[in-house]
């Protein structure tokens, strides 16, 4: 079987298209590359969606933690403490057990052109349940980063805003928020990288992989178990993740350049990737 044929069969296997049976017996290098690459779709899906939705919640949390009234500050502090203080692995388990206990009901949603039934059992599936956990988790970590940046907005910036007569929402949107982002961006880049790494935990925690539709590491472990040879599948995963990490750094570097475009080029803070550190 040619490699092109393998790509056709297994390229979208993680989404449930193509060949149903996973390769067994003699496993070729091409099959390993294709199937693990196909699993990367899930890693990118989880990481990208959690990051994009978590960003807004994280900003809200950071502002809440920085606010004076007890009623907004305390919940934000507790939320951040609980999600940063406990292992993501346990959070996945806990969420799965909770979602399984939900009563099985369907809610009809009329979209105008079509009617779909939202079912509560979707929560126990990885695509929604794990996404929610990752969303909450990354929100907590990012909120702490944004909170730190919010605290270190230079006093001069706020005084300048006052001098211009900016108050409330306008002051936040025009002065505080852009400076916060500028300060927080390098750390936020690291958080994004860790989040993508954390997506590999999904199928190793409570969430089962239905019909062997798993992520990159799930397939890598499948191959390692089949061939008793860890020296091929795991380096492949590593290679895919190095590429993904480089893409993230490039994308965030572009945003960083855009955020700092008003500064002379020498004083711009370069993005420095401080590696390591999972949760």
């Amino acid at each position: 079987m040619s490699c092109l044929q393998t790509i056709q069969d297994y390229g979208l296997r993680s989404l449930g298209y193509g060949e149903r049976l996973l390769p067994r017996g003699d496993i070729t290098l091409c099959e390993q590359f294709t199937l693990i690459g196909s699993g990367m779709i899930w890693n990118v899906y989880f990481g990208a969606l959690a990051l994009m939705s978590g960003f807004f919640f994280a900003v809200a949390l950071a502002v809440a933690k920085n606010s004076r009234p007890w009623i907004t500050r305390k919940p934000a502090e507790w939320f951040i403490f609980i999600f940063r203080g406990s292992p993501l692995f346990i959070q996945f388990f806990l969420a799965y057990e909770t979602f399984v206990l939900l009563p099985r009901v369907g809610i009809d949603i009329n979209l105008g052109f079509a009617e779909i039934t939202a079912e509560t059992r979707w929560f126990a599936r990885a695509w929604l349940g794990a996404l929610i956990v990752l969303f909450l988790n990354t929100s907590a970590y990012a909120a702490e980063i944004f909170y730190g940046a919010l605290r270190s907005v230079p006093k001069g910036d706020l005084e300048a805003a006052d001098a211009y007569g900016l108050t409330g929402w306008t002051r936040f949107r025009r002065v505080v928020f852009p400076t916060t982002m500028r300060l927080a961006w390098p750390s936020y880049t690291n958080e994004a990288i860790f989040l993508f790494h954390a997506t590999t935990l999904v199928y190793f925690s409570g969430f089962p992989a239905f019909q062997q539709k798993g992520d990159a590491l799930y397939y890598a472990q499948y191959f390692a178990d089949r061939t008793f040879n860890p020296f091929i599948p795991y380096p492949i995963v590593a290679g895919y993740f190095v590429i993904l990490t480089l893409c993230i750094i490039m994308l965030f570097g572009m945003i960083n350049a855009r955020l700092n475009r008003h500064l002379p080029s020498e004083t711009r803070s370069k993005l420095r990737y401080r590696p390591n550190l999972i949760r």
Binding site: H197, L201, L217, A224, Y234
Partner: peptide, 15 residues
């Protein structure tokens, strides 16, 4: 350890 999920290392090293 740069750029690679730690859990991949855990699974790899044990075998």
């Amino acid at each position: 350890v740069r750029g690679v999920p730690d859990i991949a290392f855990f699974l790899f090293f044990v075998i």
